[in-house]
Design a protein around this nucleic acid. Structure first.
Lengths: 203, 203
DNA sequence: CGGTGTGAATCTATTCACAGCA
DNA sequence: TGCTGTGAATAGATTCACACCG
């Protein structure tokens, strides 16, 4: 595998989303520009990092292109993930059906409160936090949604890392410390509001 | 105001978060490196875009630095925002207290279903969708959380833009088309899972 | 000294311009 | 002719290296 530049990866991910919701057979780089705002040059360059050919004089074959992006970015391989912290947010994800359609299988939920685990009704098996290492390695879970309160976030992260997790989606307003190679993505509405404020201010 | 590079802005936002949760008087660029993984060079360069001095031989004055970041990025000016689409996700935000503490005031909720507006109990005034333009301009609302179903997202966006909104946080798995100058940030757990998969694959 | 601040050098990404193809 | 694909040129961000300051 080649190293596709990070910014190109981000754009290709969004492009795959776009293509999957479109109802045409072909699309040109110019049309993608109109829909995304990225220049057609950038788009063609991004696509050139993929292997294979999806082009015709009418533009790219939508379906083939979408498939090639997913293959190149590893989105075709299904992944197992877990939810850590079963408060309001975490427990909401236990019943969220869209994951499976996208190739992400939720196979475990963890919480440090045994009481909470016993009370919650869930289609997904729930475990006390101390079983994290065992369950993660047994089911080969690669990703985690981290939904614990801020003061517990780093501790939970350390456990996940020790258990061999590959990536964490962090909902806590905290900067997590992880060893190199572990991916973290932060999801936080306030931070997004701030980012927009900042962009407006700096432009 | 100067144009701080985009990547620096993103890092400074995270740095502000970090500083606010820390309990020390001074912090050096090396300590920030240990916590974030960014090189101390990068951090010093980022900080150099700010105006003023917060340095001592012991490092940066945590509080002053945090303040300077917020001023430079416009986080000190309170902003008003609204929620569009009052389904499960949207209505959850109506009762979320953390916004106010961060300087973001939720002043309106919109939904196209009048019925839903009448039924929902909310500390925030709710309006039918057709009043969007009027309410947004009356209260000078600058930001919106877009929580409508995917098929309505573009239509709602067009209305928000027409009403003069400055930025949109989009929870729908859709690529929004907006005129230049309108900020959009996408928030979507599946996309974050995908981004991690891709980063793992491409590294 | 242990830190910061910053021009200069390097590395990376984007844009351009045009050759090649159906 | 209208598109893609891509080396070359430009612009931008990161890293380096060292002067400077308390």
């Amino acid at each position: 595998m080649n190293p596709i530049p990070e910014p190109s990866v981000e754009r290709l991910l969004i492009l795959a989303r776009l293509l999957d919701r479109l109802d045409v057979q072909f699309i040109t780089s110019g049309e993608i520009e109109a829909r995304t705002g990225w220049s057609s040059n950038t788009i063609r360059k991004d696509i050139s990092y993929l292997e294979g050919s999806f082009a015709s004089p009418a533009g790219y074959d939508r379906e083939k292109l979408s498939g090639a992006i997913k293959t190149a970015l590893g989105l075709d391989k299904p992944q197992r993930f877990c939810v850590v912290g079963l408060g309001r947010l975490g427990s909401a994800y236990l019943n969220y059906p869209a994951f499976a359609e996208e190739g992400y299988e939720l196979v475990a939920g963890f919480d440090s409160s045994v009481n909470r685990i016993e009370i919650l009704r869930s289609p997904v098996p729930l475990y006390p936090a101390y079983k994290m290492a065992e369950v993660i390695s047994r089911f080969q879970i690669s990703l985690a949604l981290l939904c614990v309160p801020p003061e517990e976030a780093q501790h939970a992260t350390d456990r996940l890392v020790a258990a061999g997790i590959k990536g964490i989606i962090n909902f806590a307003p905290v900067v997590l410390q992880v060893p190199e190679g572990i991916q973290v993505r932060n999801v936080n509405v306030v931070d997004e509001l701030r980012a927009i404020s900042a962009t407006i201010q700096c432009s």
